[in-house]
Structures are given as C-alpha cells and as structure tokens.
Computed example of a mutant assay.
Amino acid sequence: MHAVTLIKGDGIGPSIMDEAVKVIDASGVKIQWEEAFAGLAAFEQFGTPLPDETMASIDRTRLAFKGPLTTVVGGSGFRSINVALRQKYELYANVRPAKSWAGVKTRYDDVDIVIVRENTEGLYAGLEHYLTPKKDIAESLAVVTRTGSQRVIDYAFKYAQDNNRKKVTVCHKANILKFTQGLFLDVARETAVRYPDIQFDEKIIDASCMHMVMDPSQFDVIVCTNMFGDILSDLTAGLVGGLGLIPGANIGNDAALFEAVHGSAPDITGKNLANPTAVIMAGVMMLDHLGEHEAAAKIKAAVEKVVNEGKFVTPDLNPQSKCGTIEMGNAIVEAMK
C-alpha cells in the first residue's frame, strides 16, 4: 500500500484528477489517497494557498499527486505554490517528456524529447525587489550554484543511462550570462566525462528553439536551468499536440510530486470538456517511481490505445467527438481490461 497526498487543485483540476484516480485504482495498484488542498481554492477556504495540513500530509507521504493550481499573475497575489513546493521539498529535477502520439496530427510524427529542468534556482528563486520607493525599477536575481547544477545534470545523465537514451544536450546562454550560465555549462561539461556512453551536446538556448522547430529529431534528453526549461518544455508540448498531453515529475532525494503541467482552465471548468491525458500520464510516471511498473505499463498502453483510436477522446483531440472527461476516463479503464 502506497500513501499519496492527493491535491485536486483548481478549475478543471478536480474533474481530471477524479479520472486519474479512477484509472490508477482500476490498474490494481494499492494507493491510500490522502486528500489535501492548495492554490486559489485553499486560499479562499483557509486564508492561505498552502495550508499547514497539506504540508503535514506531504511531510508524511513524501509523495504528492497534484492537479493544476491557479496562481495570481502579477500584482500582490501569492507566489506560485508550485515553486514553493519544489523549494520546500528540494524537488530539484523537473522531468517533462514529450512524445508523438499516432492519433494526434501534428507537424512531426517522430518527436521523443525529455526536458530535465533545474527546479529550485535560477530566476525562479524568488529573489526580486524594487530598487526605488516609486517602484519604477525592479530587479530579479538569478541564482545558479554548483551544487544545484551538479545534482540536476547528474540526474539528466543518469536518466538517459537508465532509459536507454543516447544523448544529453545542455541548453544555455553562457555566451552572454558568463557567470551563471557559464557555471551551469562548466558543470555539464565536467559531468559528461563521467558518462562516456552518452553523447554530449551543447547548444545556445535561442538556437536550440530554432533547431527544435526545424528538426526535433536531433534532440533526446535536454537539461537546462529553470526558466529556459519552463519555456522549452512548452515548446516541446506544442510539437506533440499541446499541454493537455504532457505530464510532469518533480523529483528530489526523498520526495516527489507528479502533476499535469497545464493550467487550471477556468473557462471550461464544470463542462466535462477537460482532457485528462496529461495528469493520467503523470500518474504513470508516479507508478514507475514507486516501482509499480506493471500497473504503469498497463495504464500507458490503455491511454495510447484510446488517444490513438481518437473515438473516446475529448474535443481538443478530436473536434468531432461528443466524448467528455468522464467518458474518456471510462474508456481508458475499459481499455485496461
């Protein structure tokens, strides 16, 4: 029996998380779900976006399965809860795989890229302030440490090794940001020497974006600092059909959090339209993390069957479909039998 903190989230979160839980439970794996709250809904109910009870649950389980959370953009709203959780539990590696689906028509049909993004430092460290009383000059500090760089780059190479990947590319801006990005690149070069069986490549971040849309097949595993990874992972999502198909894992030494990487989509909340694929595939990553490989493979095969057939999928995957979130979840459960 595995104990997992379940955070359904905001907007479409509860509806897609209900389907993910239904699918995971149907796989036969034994999960003890501890429901907890975070985000805008928690703020409205408890006066804080991250209640102590939620943190206490994660402290116990060291494993969270999370739906999308609403974060106020700009102004005086609270900072990202995702960032707070990553920093609190030292979830230093954000892993986002993007792979083509046979049933989803895109420009390319052979994309298979994994982004490994440093998750706790960089420009998302939260070190920003105004320099004048008028608040007309703002400054953000990008923090890159050797320790932080080493652990995420090691993770990327080990991930490549463990998953029969051939190449790791570090995407950087060391030509301009010579200290912060230079340090990250130096660590990548030093680390590559210890993995002679993995091909190593380095690309400047803006050139990487150009090369990726011209020929994504030249990329395999990509490792980069926080903000660059955030941007590149959305780019790779666009290559395979959008964020509705992209799962995310946040990995630390003694804790992990799995999630859909898309937003809370308040415009379609309660309409039974949200695509549950991303968060179900995040559940697959979680089961693999737990060593439940048979259940993970069963769910993955069922999701691929349903998505590739294109019949019982949400309208974002097939505009002619009359199927909703619940019906797609049911079809995935049925496909596992």
Rank of each mutant, 00 (worst) to 15 (best):
M1K: 05
M1V: 13
H2S: 05
L6G: 10
D10S: 05
G13A: 09
D18P: 00
K22C: 09
V23L: 07
G28K: 02
K30M: 12
K30H: 11
Q32F: 07
E35M: 04
A36M: 04
A38E: 08
A38L: 06
A41G: 14
A41T: 11
A42Q: 14
Q45K: 15
Q45G: 00
Q45H: 14
Q45D: 09
F46L: 02
F46K: 05
P51K: 02
R62T: 14
T71P: 07
T71V: 12
V72D: 08
V72A: 14
G74C: 05
G75N: 05
F78W: 15
Q87W: 08
A93Q: 03
P97T: 13
A98W: 04
S100D: 04
G103V: 10
D110C: 10
D110G: 12
V114M: 04
E118N: 12
Y124S: 03
Y124K: 01
Y124W: 03
A125D: 06
L131N: 06
K134W: 04
A138V: 10
E139Y: 08
V143S: 03
T147M: 09
S149I: 03
R151C: 05
F157L: 06
F157C: 09
N163M: 13
N164R: 07
K166C: 01
T169M: 00
V170F: 15
C171P: 00
H172M: 13
H172K: 09
A174Q: 07
N175I: 05
I176A: 14
L177A: 12
K178V: 11
T180P: 06
Q181G: 10
Q181I: 00
Q181W: 09
G182T: 11
D186G: 09
D186L: 08
A192I: 13
R194C: 09
Y195E: 02
Q199G: 03
Q199W: 00
I205V: 15
S208P: 09
D215G: 03
S217M: 01
F219D: 01
I222G: 02
V223C: 06
C224K: 00
N226L: 09
M227P: 05
G229N: 01
D230S: 13
D230Y: 06
L232E: 09
A237N: 15
G244E: 13
P247N: 12
A249R: 12
E259I: 08
G263E: 06
I268C: 07
G270S: 10
G270E: 11
A278T: 06
A278S: 13
V279S: 07
V279P: 04
I280F: 04
M285T: 00
E292D: 15
E292N: 11
E294K: 14
E294A: 14
A297D: 15
I299G: 00
K300W: 02
A301T: 13
A302T: 09
K305I: 11
K305V: 12
V307F: 01
K311C: 07
T314V: 03
L317F: 01
P319T: 05
N330F: 03
I332S: 07
V333S: 12
M336N: 06
